[in-house]
Computed example of a mutant assay.
Amino acid sequence: MDRRDVLRTAATTVGAATLAATGIGTATAATGTATPAQRALRVHVVLFDGVEELDFAAPYEVFSLAGRVGSRPVDVQYVTATGPGTVHAAYGTEIRVRRRWAPHEADVLVVPGGGYQRPDAPGVRAEIARGTLPRALAAAPREGLTITSVCTGAMLLSAAGITRDRPCTTHHLARPDLEAQGGILKDARVVDDGDLVTAGGITSGLELGLWMARRELGPETALKAETALEYEARGTVWTRTPRTR
């Protein structure tokens, strides 16, 4: 049985069990209020000058696509720690950010990387030196929020003290620094430690997005997203505890 068969089987089993156990549909009609599974999954993707295009574009597209092909809506927004404005990415892309910094209004916070190997250019190292984004990230954790990173975005989380003594991963060139700063490195494409999920490598934003789609929206949605993207997630996902979804 290949991985797509596994996802499809899991989706059927979980979906039937959920409906039977909760009676989701009838409960909503009776109360007139949305259940957590029906409320939009709120995803905030953090941007900063020097951010790597693929680091933020890949998870943005996966989450947005998952909202289209799945049964639960997904609201994906770009945010910056300095407020609305124009962000200049690593290869010259300009992104107009209109959403204010509001991690208390998010379910998932995605922190991409970029520029960690270029100390004299905009990017992760410059943001760490400035301190604004690490301070904002340090104040963000709360119950109900999952903080995630792509590539060297983990070094911003490290500067915020979020990865210390936690299983995590990052781009292979930054792994020694992440470990030296207290992270517990795992040799995996995605490391899921509950409210902290990190992904290693520039293209791992695809894996992060698909894993979080599976975890938060269900395997059927992840399968549909993979099919639409014509991409199958690669590499190992390390998790602290087995998941049924």
Rank of each mutant, 00 (worst) to 15 (best):
G123N: 01
L229A: 13
R42M: 11
R42I: 09
G144N: 10
E230Q: 14
G115W: 01
T132H: 11
P122R: 12
P242C: 09
G144R: 08
G115E: 05
V79P: 00
P122L: 10
G153N: 03
L41P: 06
D165Y: 07
H44V: 12
I147N: 02
P36W: 07
T93Q: 10
T12G: 11
R243Q: 15
H172M: 04
R166C: 11
L19W: 08
G32N: 07
R68G: 13
D165W: 09
W101K: 09
L206T: 08
E226H: 11
L145V: 08
T18Q: 12
E127W: 07
L210T: 10
A16E: 12
L19A: 15
L137K: 00
H104E: 15
P141R: 08
G115A: 10
P119A: 02
H104F: 08
P59L: 09
L137Y: 06
L65G: 11
G115Q: 03
T93P: 00
G113Q: 04
F48M: 09
A213M: 13
E226P: 07
R8H: 12
G161Q: 03
D187R: 12
T148V: 06
A129M: 05
L137E: 01
G182C: 06
T31Q: 05
G182N: 04
T170A: 05
P141G: 08
D107P: 07
T244I: 13
R245Q: 11
E220H: 13
G50D: 02
G85Q: 09
L41N: 04
E179Q: 14
R3S: 13
R142H: 14
R72M: 11
D177N: 02
W101M: 07
E226V: 12
S149T: 07
R240G: 15
A27Q: 15
D120Y: 10
V111Y: 01
R135A: 15
T169Y: 01
P73A: 11
A40M: 09
A174V: 02
D75I: 07
A180W: 00
H88Q: 03
P119T: 05
A106D: 10
H88E: 03
R96D: 11
I24Y: 11
H88N: 06
E232M: 13
G70F: 02
E230I: 13
T22P: 00
A222Y: 02
A21F: 11
D49P: 11
A174K: 00
P176D: 01
P36D: 07
L157K: 00
E179N: 00
P219V: 03
G92D: 02
I162N: 01
L196S: 07
E53P: 07
R234M: 10
P36I: 06
K224S: 15
R8S: 14
I202M: 13
A34R: 14
A233E: 04
R175C: 06
T9G: 13
G183Q: 02
I147T: 09
G123K: 04
G218M: 00
T9N: 12
V14E: 06
L217Q: 02
P219D: 07
R189A: 04
A199V: 01
D55N: 10
Q38C: 06
A17D: 12
A102W: 03
R189L: 01
L185D: 00
L54A: 14
V43H: 05
L173Q: 09
D49N: 15
I147P: 04
F48L: 10
A140I: 06
L217G: 02
L178F: 00
D75R: 14
E226Q: 15
T28K: 13
M212D: 05
S204K: 01
L217P: 01
T35Y: 09
R142Q: 12
Y91N: 14
Y91P: 00
R8L: 13
S158A: 10
